[in-house]
Simulated assay, not measured.
Amino acid sequence: MADLVARSTTRNFSYTGVKGSIQLPSTYSVPRTDEFINFYVGLNGSAGSAVESGLSYGYRDGKFAWRYFLNNGNSTQFQSVEYPGGLTGGQIVPVQLEIINGVAYFTAGGQYKLQVAVSNDLRNPAQAKQVIAAKEEAGGTVTHAKVIFSNLQVKSAGSFVAWTTSTPTNPPYTNTSRYVLGNTTGVPLTATLNP
């Protein structure tokens, strides 16, 4: 099984939240029941912990469906709920993740909410990230058209501010040539997963 990823992270560990919108790919292929695609925002703690939240498409509970999810990055707490009414290719979904008093709160679509407790290093300001990812079996053929993040903001000192190209950000990263990045800044992150 392979984890395929494209991501963009802030250079600084200065944030307690991240929000924006995710435009889903117009087309996608997840042919096997043990494969999936997911697009999410997250926060990385200084000691290696993480909290991640976003949208995922794959097979669970007997069917393929879009879900929204939140996990504490250590797989000790994971929540995934089928997106009410489903989602369609190209749809734009707002997402928001915040850590308040040791609890991560996630909102998808402006109304669907999840929460999990986080580790101690995430009680301090953290590194923000945007991630476009897939998991496939050996010889798999998971693909998706372009995914686009937009309207990005990070929360610093209690307020959300725009995450722009002037925000100190690491160069975008991908671990496979199959992910084609839409720009060289990673702000916003855009990527297509080719066969």
Rank of each mutant, 00 (worst) to 15 (best):
G62K: 02
L87G: 02
G140N: 02
P84M: 05
K129H: 10
G186K: 07
L152C: 13
I148V: 15
T192G: 13
G48D: 10
V93L: 14
A104E: 06
E137Q: 13
P195S: 11
G158S: 06
N194D: 11
A104V: 10
T184Y: 02
Q77T: 10
Y15E: 13
A128N: 13
V103N: 11
N120H: 00
L55K: 05
A104H: 05
L193G: 03
Y173D: 12
A104M: 11
V103K: 07
L55G: 13
Q79C: 00
L114V: 04
R32Q: 15
T76K: 12
K63L: 04
R11I: 12
L4K: 02
P171C: 09
G58E: 00
F78L: 09
L189F: 07
G58T: 00
G186W: 05
V30F: 08
Y57H: 07
F69R: 01
A134K: 01
H144R: 14
D61F: 08
Y40C: 14
P188V: 01
Y83V: 08
G42C: 12
T165D: 08
Y83R: 05
T88Q: 08
V103L: 12
G86P: 11
A145D: 15
P168C: 01
V118Q: 09
T143I: 08
S14T: 03
Q96W: 00
P31T: 03
P195A: 13
L87H: 01
T165P: 04
G89M: 03
S75I: 00
D3V: 15
Y173M: 13
I100M: 07
E52A: 04
M1R: 08
N194P: 07
S46A: 14
Y173N: 03
N170K: 06
P168T: 00
Q77K: 11
L193A: 05
V103G: 11
L70M: 06
W66T: 06
R11N: 13
N170A: 10
Y57A: 05
G89W: 04
L114F: 01
G20L: 12
Y15A: 11
I148W: 02
F160I: 08
V180I: 15
M1K: 07
G158E: 06
A47D: 04
G102I: 02
L122Q: 02
Q23A: 15
L87W: 01
L122W: 01
V116K: 12
T143S: 14
Q111H: 08
P172C: 06
Y40K: 05
F64A: 10
G48H: 06
G89S: 03
N38K: 11
Q96E: 12
V154M: 04
I99Y: 05
